[in-house]
Simulated scan of single mutants.
Amino acid sequence: MLRGPVFTLIVIMAAGAAWGHGVTGGDQAYMIASQGIHPFPFMYLGAKHMVTGYDHLLYLAGVIFFLRHIGDVAKFVSLFAVGHSITLLYGVLSGTQVNVYLVDAIIGLSICYKALENLTVIRWLDARIAVFGFGLIHGFGLSSKLQDLALPSDGLVGNMIFFNIGVEIGQVIALVALFSLSTSMRGLRFYDGIAQYINIGLFGAGLVLFGYQLTGFFITWR
């Protein structure tokens, strides 16, 4: 009876995951044209990216899914935020760029890994190491996208710092909603079954993202 809704959930999540790290055209134009430091606009853009970045949200949803205490959520999310911030700022400010298709494919695998971990299928890494490591990878994904925009050097350091602050603000907003939803679901009669289906959906979304990005890599590879 749940197969129809679950399949629909997987399709919706997977479709979102396929474009999760993009920056919209209007936002791109603003960032490219910005000379000097613009704290609040770049904070807004960072927050907007996070709350519409389905790859981030899918992974973080998996991270906090079975956490029951806000302190545990803060600990793991902080590890992810530190890793994400390091590679985002380092990548943009140093000009270090990686293939975006490969990075996004690994991000897809990070979602798959967390879903399988939640389903107790695998546990290869210490949870803290895994969250921090995948945070590093997620940061490189966004930094590579931002470098493609050829942002002006005037105010770049300040704008990227404020953009990253916005990302973390958006992350907090999204996680409050996700944690509230997951907490409210625990009182449901069939919670264990629902949790299993949701994590299967997470795995399916990550797998679609992985295949989508890997295909892009081979199509554009020279």
Rank of each mutant, 00 (worst) to 15 (best):
A74C: 01
L45S: 10
D72N: 12
I194V: 15
L136N: 06
T24A: 00
G216S: 00
G193C: 02
L136A: 00
A150W: 05
A105T: 05
G83D: 03
W19I: 14
T215A: 06
S94H: 03
H138W: 08
V103H: 12
F179N: 09
F42C: 06
K75T: 11
Y30I: 11
D72I: 11
G201F: 09
L57T: 08
G206P: 09
T52V: 09
N118T: 03
R128S: 13
T183Q: 12
V51Y: 07
Y191I: 07
F7Y: 10
K114H: 07
A29N: 05
S182Y: 02
H138Y: 03
G139D: 10
G71W: 11
R222L: 12
G216K: 07
G211C: 11
S153P: 00
I194Y: 00
G53C: 01
A33L: 05
F65P: 10
D154C: 07
I107E: 11
S153Q: 11
G46K: 05
L79D: 04
D72Y: 10
V92I: 06
A81K: 03
I173D: 09
S184W: 08
F66N: 12
N199E: 00
T8V: 14
I129A: 14
M1G: 15
K114V: 14
P41S: 04
A18R: 13
F40G: 01
Q35F: 11
L202H: 11
D55V: 14
M13K: 13
R222Q: 07
A29T: 12
Q196G: 04
L109C: 12
G170P: 07
E168W: 08
N164L: 02
A127N: 14
H49P: 02
V131K: 07
I169R: 03
Q213A: 15
P41Y: 07
G22K: 10
A127H: 15
H69T: 12
V167H: 08
T215K: 03
G36K: 07
H84P: 10
A177V: 14
V92G: 03
R128L: 11
M1A: 15
L88P: 10
R189K: 14
G91K: 09
A15S: 12
V82T: 04
S182C: 12
Y101R: 01
W19D: 01
F179R: 02
D192I: 14
A195C: 00
H69N: 13
L88N: 08
H49V: 05
D27R: 06
A15N: 01
G133H: 11
H21C: 06
S184C: 08
G170T: 08
A177D: 03
M13E: 05
G4K: 05
L9R: 11
A61I: 00
D154Y: 03
I111N: 04
L89I: 13
